[in-house]
Amino acid sequence: LLEPLPDDCPLMDIERITQSVVKSHLETSQYSSDDLKRLTYNGMQYSPEETRNFQCESAESVWQQCAHHITNSIQYVVEFAKRITGFMDLCQNDQIILLKAGCLEVLLIRMCRAFNATTNTMFFDGKFASAQLFKALGCDDLVSAVFDLAKGLSRLQLTDEEMALFSAACLLSPDRPWLTDSQKVQKLQAKVYLALQHSLHMSGAADEKLDQMVSKLPMMKSICNLHIDKLEFFRLVHPETAYSFPPLYREVFGS
């Protein structure tokens, strides 16, 4: 963290990137941190009866609802990416690849603010829901992995700036397959990581905080892969429902 900044990335650049990414994050978050703190404080939870009713819904119906919510959130991630300095300078092929491969990772990072660690519940469709609410999905392993990740990330107490820079760094992963110019992506990601390190250093965060954030990456990747596996299986069993999912959801996760 205390390494001098490389010559090709002066402090002014770092601060400019930080401002651009944080501004983009704040402009493109569905709920502000204050909104979520207020919602958590109000603590509206699904009653046992509401939970039972939701658990009795069909898998198709619950998949449909979740796909709708994820699709809505993806649009915010697209706008987040567009506002990151340098993203729109990438070729369109790489913009599409980074969004398809990384949008769910950004959502998983953002979701930790919607997680109530005291009650182990996640804000979903207006109230806080336990993992059991989603039983009808038939994806208990996926749902519990999402809740575990949210619990772990919420424990890190990321500031808006740290969350913005971390999610931008995840989105700008140069190791995504089929990238045309992975080196250009790598340079962009390196600057965002430097900005994150600088932000952590300036805020006096514990040295291991960055390591703890990076240690979540494998879990995020496995959740994204598990989501695709579950979607593939669901499509085999309910092809017509899968075909009726929102077009953007099918476009992002379809192939």
Partner: peptide, 20 residues
């Protein structure tokens, strides 16, 4: 382009935060 026309369109659109 055909396979990802929605993403292409979203990337081209200039959406203000208010519209978002």
């Amino acid at each position: 382009k055909e396979k990802h026309k929605i993403l292409h369109r979203l990337l081209q659109n200039s959406t203000s935060p208010v519209e978002l």
